[in-house]
Amino acid sequence: MADIVRATAADVPALAAVLASAYAEDPVWSWLMPRDRDRRLRLLFTAHLAQQVPAGRVWTDPERTVAAVWAEPGAWKLPATYLLRNAGPLLRATRAQLQRTAGRLFTMEHRHPAGPEHWYVEYIGTRADARGTGRGARVLGGLLARADADGRPVFLESSNRRNLTFYQRHGFAVHEEMAFRSGPPMWSMWRRDERGAEPGSGR
């Protein structure tokens, strides 16, 4: 875990900028925010990180060029109070695309598997000028080592086809290519637990 550190409240502005940079060309976020994307993503991620940091769910590298939001088993679902607290930033960030954004978020929550109990990679991104340095891989690897020690699988959704090979190198496999009524597809992925069992297989 030496390559990763738990983020603090002071890190929120820098890490919101990291995620905005990482998702700037993402197909789903480009569809949700066709204009003024960097500013609007910063608004959204600032509000989200500010709520997740106190829970200890935001991780980064010593240089603050990678941001990861990582939920422990049973804690992936956002409470209703989260939406109430973030209503203002969500409105300012999504503007005319509020209905589209809320629809995609609610659909993803509905499709999220109830079991088996799992760790959840909600977001992970590397600042554009630090890509290719291996820092994102080190942060993800440090988090996955924690899951291995716990003996439970890890779940994520990828919104960019180009990132699938990155996750596959870390032991993830595509579970489903998810199509929607509108907008780009996404991919759900599972990483087996330390016994090598497929999630939900009972083996």
Rank of each mutant, 00 (worst) to 15 (best):
137 A>C: 13
103 G>W: 01
191 R>S: 05
65 T>A: 13
147 A>G: 01
142 G>H: 10
80 A>W: 15
201 S>I: 05
194 E>C: 07
85 R>Y: 07
203 R>W: 15
201 S>A: 11
139 V>H: 05
146 R>G: 14
203 R>T: 14
138 R>G: 07
92 R>Y: 08
132 G>C: 10
137 A>R: 15
65 T>D: 08
130 A>M: 08
129 D>F: 08
65 T>H: 08
133 T>G: 11
15 L>C: 10
159 S>R: 00
39 R>Q: 12
115 G>R: 11
196 G>A: 11
111 R>G: 05
118 H>E: 02
52 Q>V: 04
15 L>Y: 00
133 T>L: 07
135 R>P: 05
56 G>C: 08
167 Y>V: 06
110 H>T: 13
3 D>G: 13
196 G>E: 13
10 A>Q: 07
167 Y>K: 01
58 V>A: 06
13 P>N: 01
100 R>C: 07
132 G>P: 10
17 A>R: 12
94 T>M: 13
189 M>Y: 02
200 G>P: 03
63 E>R: 09
73 P>W: 02
116 P>S: 08
200 G>Y: 15
114 A>Q: 10
3 D>Q: 13
184 P>R: 01
77 K>V: 15
167 Y>D: 00
151 G>Y: 07
107 T>I: 06
169 R>Y: 02
146 R>L: 15
2 A>G: 12
191 R>M: 02
195 R>I: 06
172 F>Q: 03
133 T>I: 07
96 A>D: 14
177 E>K: 09
136 G>K: 08
109 E>R: 12
144 L>I: 04
182 S>Y: 12
47 A>M: 07
183 G>N: 03
165 T>W: 06
155 F>G: 00
45 F>D: 09
38 D>H: 11
103 G>M: 01
49 L>H: 02
54 P>M: 12
39 R>G: 14
69 V>R: 12
2 A>C: 06
91 L>P: 02
26 D>E: 12
30 S>A: 14
149 A>K: 09
89 P>H: 03
88 G>D: 10
201 S>T: 11
149 A>W: 06
64 R>E: 03
38 D>N: 10
131 R>L: 15
150 D>T: 07
35 R>G: 09
67 A>T: 14
28 V>K: 03
182 S>H: 14
88 G>E: 09
8 T>N: 08
24 A>L: 15
5 V>S: 08
53 V>G: 04
20 A>E: 07
46 T>H: 09
